[in-house]
Design a protein around this nucleic acid. Structure first.
Lengths: 204, 204
DNA sequence: CTAGAAAGCTAATGCCATTAGCCACCGGTG
DNA sequence: CACCGGTGGCTAATGGCATTAGCTTTCTAG
């Protein structure tokens, strides 16, 4: 029997593939048996590389958080940061243009939704991630939004409210869209642009 | 062995109790074994009243949708409709006052969040519910929001966008709050009021 | 070349949903 | 009052899942 050459890294990669294949429910359905099957290995063998299902799910979620953060970063700093990342997120702006203020908020909102539509399972994984006690100046998705909102030049005593509002609006829209919550045939793209403008222009 | 006196009704009631006890994860953890235990019955006995776990979950979700719709209706039409319903939802307005326009949108938003905080498991169940092909003039949560938004007197060609925006903002906020997504100590109540005002005044 | 760690395996356990088939209760009818 | 059938409960068995224990095989370092 040849060895499969697994490592913790590879196992998480395979799990990500399972999540991606599962579509919207890929995250919910992520289990050891699917990963083992994809690895061509018996289920207990995975325990040589991973500390059980909860630990694997945490690792996958953490990777997805980094993944989303990278896409969001690329959306505001220009694709130059890493051209292999999702090009959709960076669409509509020149290379190396670092966006600020309202433009950055719009770009981040669009990037988040694009990521969620391209990788629904991963987006759900991001939501299931532990709020991993990051420092106040981390580069996670929340901080990227916070930085962009701060650049809007609005009253600082409302920054927290503003960040929460932007996060809630974008997340809620994406969640409803992924869950099939928009039954009517009307253009969902247009509705999203409308939501973003409503929030960006409504903040004060 | 005395009989337990179960009916489909009673089984769903017990399942709701399981969901409520489970807090935020009550919906995710709803299973037949927990229901059977609570009923004082062996698991297979439940199959005499319910067509398997998916069917039970559907029935529970449907009840939660009606439940939420009732609370929302009470929030805009006054508690007179059914005084036994969650009094929090109707707080801040006189009896029998039917709200319209911006006041109705605010009241609905507050009612939805209050319901979600009081019954996190049930709120999650509502989101997991099938979009049960209702008629266009049904009295579900979505239609209640749609009616209130229409009364704002804004351009009708944007009604769909407006309804989606309101739903997304409120749902996203509640989802983040339930998921522990708001790490900072700042007042969440104030942030929610801020969000509602941002949306209500930002729509056009 | 060899020894030991690392990576795979099978077997066994326990929890869950589901199906099949058995028995006891309870309400109506003779 | 007896009895009889349907219905609601039960136990047993199956299959999927994660997990643990213990064995074997395969690389690789010395």
């Amino acid at each position: 029997m040849p060895r499969a050459g697994l490592t913790p890294q590879v196992v998480v990669d395979l799990a990500l593939a399972v999540v991606d294949e599962g579509g919207t429910s890929g995250w919910a359905n992520l289990g050891l048996s699917a990963v083992a099957q994809r690895a061509g290995v018996a289920v207990p063998s995975l325990y040589k590389h991973v500390d059980g299902l909860p630990a694997l799910r945490s690792a996958v979620a953490a990777r997805c958080v980094d993944d989303l953060a990278a896409v969001m970063t690329a959306a505001v700093t220009g694709p130059a940061a890493d051209p292999t990342l999702d090009p959709v997120a960076a669409a509509g702006k020149g290379p190396n243009a670092t966006l600020t203020g309202a433009a950055a908020v719009r770009a981040l909102a669009i990037a988040i939704r694009a990521y969620a539509l391209a990788h629904p399972g991963r987006y759900r994984a991001v939501q299931g991630a532990e709020t991993a006690a990051l420092g106040p100046a981390s580069s996670g998705p929340v901080d990227l939004v916070a930085r962009a909102v701060r650049e809007l030049g609005l009253p600082p005593d409302r920054w927290v409210d503003q960040v929460r509002t932007v996060r809630a609006a974008v997340h809620g829209f994406v969640e409803l869209e992924l869950g099939g919550g928009f039954g009517l045939p009307e253009d969902v793209e247009a509705s999203f642009r409308y939501l973003v403008e409503t929030v960006v222009t409504g903040l004060r």
